[in-house]
């Protein structure tokens, strides 16, 4: 089977949430000695991107999104040992992501994290209700390129600004790109915070991180 055809089948298996088939195709790609980076990017990654688009369009819902992400993760566990020699080139960067202190809304953040992982980023998901100081400390420890801060409440949004303020206080603002997420976040708020960008959907979040990473 050509790699193009395999990628189409993998993408379809992900969209159909057919775990067995997706994992079998991953094994076949390994056994055939195919370019696994290509398979991750254009097979599995493409499938996840399609599910993300279907979520935005209201064609699939939260359970499908999570299942798709889970299948992707299992497939990555199979593929990663074989990808090791290429891992540098596959790994696009390190993203530390969290929902800010006081806010336990974690779904949007988790979706964005899953999509970023699926797209080749090394994602450190710190969970929800995380203090601004901790987000910054973890970003330093993980040597992150991008910090993503989610807030679903207008009362907790102020914590997003706090992350940027702490980076400025410590004179390390330029080391990180800071992106914001959450329903009440607007372009104006990003400017007020001095952050680098925001996205309305998980798909746009991936695009944003890609843009910011390449603008370095």
């Amino acid at each position: 089977m050509s790699i193009e055809k395999l990628n189409v089948e993998i993408s379809e298996a992900i969209v159909n949430l057919d775990k067995e088939k997706a994992l079998e195709l991953a094994k076949r790609a390994i056994a055939s000695g195919l370019n696994l980076l290509d398979v991750v990017e254009h097979g599995f990654g493409e499938g996840i991107r399609k599910i993300g688009d279907l979520w935005d369009e209201g064609e699939v819902f939260l359970p499908e999104l999570m299942l798709g992400g889970n299948i992707m993760q299992e497939a990555m566990e199979l593929l990663l040992p074989h990808l090791k020699e290429h891992s540098e080139s596959f790994n696009r960067g390190v993203v530390v992501i969290a929902t800010i202190e006081g806010d336990i809304h974690s779904i949007g953040k988790t979706i964005v994290g899953t999509m970023l992982s699926a797209n080749g980023y090394d994602v450190h998901d710190l969970g929800a209700d995380v203090p601004a100081e901790k987000i910054v400390d973890e970003a330093i420890n993980a040597n992150a390129n991008v910090i993503g801060v989610s807030a679903l409440l207008t009362t907790t949004m102020t914590g997003q600004k706090k992350v940027v303020d702490i980076l400025k206080e410590r004179n390390i603002r330029s080391k990180f790109k800071v992106i914001l997420g959450g329903a009440p976040v607007s372009r104006k708020w990003v400017e007020e915070c001095g952050a680098d960008g925001y996205a309305d959907s998980a798909v746009d979040a991936v695009k944003l991180v890609k843009e910011l990473s390449s603008s370095k």
């Binding site: 369009e57 209201g58 819902f61 359970p63 499908e64």
Partner: peptide, 13 residues
């Protein structure tokens, strides 16, 4: 409910 192209659904579908 959230409004989708196919009508009103919960986020769980």
């Amino acid at each position: 409910y959230k409004k989708t192209k196919r009508g009103f659904f919960t986020i769980m579908g």
